[in-house]
Amino acid sequence: MTNASLSEGAARRSVIARLIRRPTAVFGFSLIVIAVAAAILAPVISPYAPDAQHFDGLTIEGAPLPPGGAYPLGTDLLGRDLLTRIIHGARTSLVIGLAANGLALLIGTLVGVTAGYFRGWTGAVLMRFTDLMMAFPALLLAICLAAIFQPSLWIVALVIALVNWVQTSRILYTETTSLTEREFIAAERAIGAGHGRILFRHILPHLLPTIIVWGTLGISTTVLLEATLSYLGIGVQPPMPSWGNIIFENQTYFQAAPWLVFFPGAAIVLLALSFNLVGDALRDELDPTQRGRD
C-alpha cells in the first residue's frame, strides 16, 4: 500500500516535471492562472465599476472612445469601461466553464461507465441515447434549449452541460468496456468483490487520466459555446458582462469601433486556447498510447 502510493506520487511528480518542460503547456497554464486571478480579484483590479456609465466615456457625438487615456481598452456604446467589463467577463466565462463542464463530465462519466460496465439492456439503451444525441447539431440543440428556458447564468451552464456530455460518455464507454474484460477485474469478481468496490477501486482510478484530459479540453468547448450563445443574445444576459454578450451589444458599431469586438474576442480565444494547450499536453503525458508519438 505504502509502496503503491509512493510510486503513484513519484509518477505524478514526473508528469508535472515533464509538463514543465513543454513550453506550450507552461504558456497555457500561465494564461489560466492570469484568467483565474483576474476573475477572483475583479472588483479589486478593475479601474471602475462594471456597470458605471461615464459621462466622459463617450465623444461629444455619443460615440465610444478608442483605447488609451483614462480607459485603457476604450469604452463601449454606453460609455462603460471596456477593460473593466472584460475583467468581470472572466468571472462569467470561468464560472460557466467550470460549472457546465463539471456537470457535463459527471453526466458523461455516469452514462459512459454505467453503460460500459453493466452492458446488456442498460448499456444498449444508454448508448443508443448517446448516438441519438450525437446526431443533434450541438449548437442548434443549445439554441433550442436556451430559447425554452429564460436565460440566466445557471440555465446557460445547464444547457451547455446537456449538450456537452456526449463525447465524454462515448470515450469512457469504450475504455470501460475494454477494462471490464481485463484479467484483474475477472480476478476481483472471482474473489467476490461487489460492483461498488470494482467500480470505485478499480475502474474509476484507471479512467482518471482520461477524465482529467477530457475535463480540461471540455472547458475550452464550454467557453466557446457560452460565448456563442451570448453572442446570439440567448446566453448570459446584459448588464451582466460576458465576453460573448459584450460583442453582441456592440456589434452594430463594429466597423467604427472594432476594439469592442476584438478585445473580448481575443479574451475568448486566449482562454479557450489555454485549456486546449494544457489538455493536449496532459493527453500526451497521461495517455500511454500517445507516449512517444512525438
Binding site: I247, F254, L277
Partner: peptide
C-alpha cells in the same frame, strides 16, 4: 512545427463569430 501546431490550436479555439467578424473587418 511548434508554431504550426500552436496555430492549429488557435484555429480550434476561436469561436466562429470572432473569426468571421475579424475576417470581415
Amino acid at each position: 512545427d511548434t508554431s504550426l501546431m500552436v496555430a492549429s490550436f488557435v484555429g480550434v479555439s476561436a469561436p466562429q463569430f470572432v473569426v468571421g467578424l475579424l475576417l470581415l473587418y
